[in-house]
């Protein structure tokens, strides 16, 4: 398992997956507070001539909380696309290029291969989303004022990291069905958006991984109307079940097919 973890770390650096994810998270973490503070008010001022500062600040929530909410929305809209496409080749590419055959033939267990991928990228996604959230918090705090404590921001970062882990497990599962990384990415993205839509339409977010995002927004807005314990427990069960199905799919795969 240790050698698999080291291999995944090396592959993550070599294929620039870590770089893509961390760069995009940090980019939006820095960009959103600056947009809120300088660019949006100037754009609104140019669009609606004669509008004063007070009316502009009524139109957009110019506070640390507003900036963090903006960052969270960016992370959901653009961050998930980047994460899904960066990680879509994790299994799909290996199956397509037959690079899993050698480790399997040399006696490596599939559980160890899949487990190390899940472990390395899960830890990385949690660290990246928490770091992004803290940087956005600090930037927004410097630009506006420190209205919120650091603890809720850390919890929000962990919840967003959790949602990204769900996307990772989905990308790995779909990678065993479709051998194409881009196809896997689109399927994962479509499925995650479908889950979000189902959660919103039937008000089922508490029982779906998308509830982690809604719970995070609730924490920032001080609206604890959702039982996060249930959402977290169901999210862990779902990730476990998805990983188990991925493993079963790989175990039943004919590795020497052309």
């Amino acid at each position: 398992m240790k050698s698999d973890i080291i291999k995944e770390l090396r592959m993550g650096i070599r294929t620039s997956r870590f770089l893509v994810i961390i760069a995009s998270f940090l980019f939006f973490a820095i960009l959103t507070p600056i947009m809120m503070k300088y660019i949006l008010p100037q754009l609104l001022h140019n669009q609606f001539q004669g509008m004063n500062e007070a009316s502009i600040s009524q139109m957009i929530d110019m506070s640390q909380k507003g900036a963090l909410l903006g960052y969270m929305s960016d992370l959901f809209e653009i961050g998930t696309i980047i994460v899904v496409f960066a990680l879509s080749g994790l299994l799909a590419q290996e199956i397509k290029e037959n690079t899993l055959v050698l480790p399997i033939c040399s006696g490596k267990k599939l559980l160890s291969i899949v487990g190390s991928k899940l472990l390395v990228f899960s830890v990385f996604l949690i660290l990246a989303s928490t770091l992004g959230m803290v940087i956005s918090y600090l930037y927004a705090g410097i630009l506006f004022s420190f209205d919120i404590g650091l603890w809720p921001v850390l919890v929000i970062g962990l919840l967003y990291g959790g949602y990204m882990i769900f996307l990772l497990s989905l990308a790995m599962l779909f990678g065993t069905f479709i051998k194409n990384a881009i196809g896997t990415g689109f399927m994962t993205l479509g499925f995650s958006l479908f889950i979000y839509f189902i959660g919103s339409y039937f008000k089922l977010h508490t029982y779906l991984p998308s509830g982690l995002l809604i719970g995070a927004q609730g924490i920032l807005n001080n609206q604890a109307d959702q039982n996060l314990g249930i959402t977290l427990a169901l999210f862990l069960i779902m990730v476990f079940v998805i990983s188990k199905i991925t493993l079963i799919r790989l175990e039943n795969k004919e590795w020497n097919e052309r």
């Binding site: 940090l26 820095i30 600056i34 300088y38 660019i39 100037q42 754009l43 140019n46 669009q47 930037y139």
Partner: peptide, 20 residues
């Protein structure tokens, strides 16, 4: 035309973004 006025503070805040 939309013009964005660049201030010194704004440029300093944008530096990490530029670096990335």
């Amino acid at each position: 035309m939309n013009t964005i006025e660049l201030t010194g503070e704004m440029i300093i805040m944008l530096l990490p973004l530029l670096a990335i």
